[in-house]
């Protein structure tokens, strides 16, 4: 446990040197503020421009689910970039051979940031939600966001073998987040094409207002996580 703590602290120092730590504190609040205060104003602008009654308002829930996804993904993305750097510098192999081990390394790089982002996401949803949701739904949204963030990072570090591939995979995996919006934009029969994405089930849970739909999201996230760790380039 001490090794995990030291390893996490080491990552914080690395991020502090990059100024990324300060940004990590400010950015989610900034994004939340933009969503909360900017979207309703943007709605005013675009409805006037396109001469329509409402354009974005029916999709306010989508923004909330996006906020719940983006915050943990942001933290896990930062951690994934650190892992890529460490792998390119051959530090990872040395850490695996230390008392930290592979499990401890993953906990310090993805587990702890994931847990922290859960708490932050919960707070941000409480402060910046466009639509009022219950505590339970909010918790499920934050939990799903965290699972997605961890899968996202695992994909980046397992599929790619260096920084450049990492950036390319990041761009591609970020599309996985779009699953949350499918229930709003696609007909029911077509949207099931995205059944394999945990984000789709989270979106569906909010769209149907049915918390039980979080179960397939969590199960799928578990399967994704298991496969990615087993594939094991990280």
């Amino acid at each position: 446990m001490k090794a995990v703590q030291i390893s996490f602290r080491q990552m914080l120092v690395f991020l502090k040197n990059d100024m990324m730590l300060a940004i990590a504190c400010v950015a989610p609040v900034f994004i939340g503020s933009i969503f909360c205060f900017g979207i309703p104003r943007l709605e005013g602008v675009v409805t006037e421009y396109f001469k329509m009654k409402s354009i974005l308002k029916p999709y306010y829930q989508v923004f909330d689910v996006f906020l719940a996804s983006i915050t943990p993904v942001f933290y896990c993305f930062v951690a994934a970039m650190v892992i890529l750097e460490e792998r390119d510098d051959h530090i990872t192999d040395a850490l695996y051979a230390s008392p930290l081990g592979k499990g401890g390394y993953l906990v310090s790089r993805l587990g702890i940031p994931g847990l922290l982002s859960f708490v932050i996401t919960e707070g941000l949803l409480l402060a910046f939600s466009l639509i009022h949701v219950s505590f339970l739904t909010r918790t499920f949204m934050a939990m799903n966001g965290v699972l997605q963030g961890v899968i996202f990072s695992l994909m980046v570090v397992t599929i790619s073998s260096n920084k450049l591939e990492g950036m390319a995979v990041t761009k591609l995996t970020s599309l996985m987040m779009l699953g949350v919006a499918m229930p709003w934009f696609l007909p029911e029969k077509v949207q099931y094409v995205f059944w394999f994405l945990p984000s789709y089930w989270m979106g569906k849970a909010v769209w149907c207002q049915e918390n039980l739909l979080v179960i397939p999201a969590v199960l799928l996230a578990g399967v994704w996580g298991y496969c990615l760790v087993k594939r094991g380039r990280c």
């Binding site: 690395f14 991020l15 990059d18 100024m19 990324m20 940004i23 930062v78 970039m81 650190v82 890529l84 750097e85 920084k163 990492g166 950036m167």
Partner: peptide
């Protein structure tokens, strides 16, 4: 820059 996070920033 020295790292990817720095570049993104």
């Amino acid at each position: 820059i020295e790292s990817l996070n720095q570049f993104i920033l």
